[in-house]
């Protein structure tokens, strides 16, 4: 599993969901967690963290947000060589096939459908960790 020092960015326009995700991450031992309320506020945070030499180790984002949607943020991250290897999980109420396919095409690490329980989120994090560790790009880094 990701080390407990991993720096997380949790993005959702609803503070309730950010709190719920933080609560689950805390239960898993993660305390280095920052929050953003929209993709539009998250992107400069991701860039600033990278520039400061303290990049995020994991991004968890809602899909449906008013200014910049999670899928657009995902695409922006994947298009930037500095951010493309940061694991990126979408948490969304959208569970239709076309949305899941769009996220997969954009390079999402995993996809959590709301509502979810803490066991589901934990299981997805473990799956992403296993995948990241078996990826040649990460091993080479």
């Amino acid at each position: 599993m990701f080390p407990t020092t991993t720096k997380f960015l949790v993005i959702d326009d609803f503070s309730t969901m950010r709190k719920i995700i933080k609560k689950v991450l805390n239960e898993l031992g993660y305390t280095n967690i920052e929050e953003a309320d929209d993709g539009a506020t998250a992107l400069p945070m991701i860039q600033a963290a990278q520039a400061a030499g303290q990049p995020y180790g994991f991004i968890i984002s809602d899909w449906n947000m008013p200014k910049m949607q999670g899928i657009e943020l995902l695409k922006a991250c994947k298009a930037d060589p500095n951010h493309k290897n940061i694991p990126f999980m979408l948490v969304t109420a959208e569970s239709e096939q076309k949305q899941i396919l769009e996220a997969a095409k954009a390079g999402v690490s995993d996809y959590v459908v709301k509502p979810f329980n803490s066991a589901t989120l934990k299981g997805k994090l473990e799956k992403v960790y296993a995948r990241v560790n078996s990826s040649p790009a990460t091993k080479a880094a």
């Binding site: 609803f14 309730t16 969901m17 969304t92 109420a93 959208e94 569970s95 709301k114 509502p115």
Partner: peptide
Amino acid sequence: TDAVGELTNMIYGS
């Protein structure tokens, strides 16, 4: 109020 927004969002999505 935030929780009601998120609940409405999730229930509708589901």
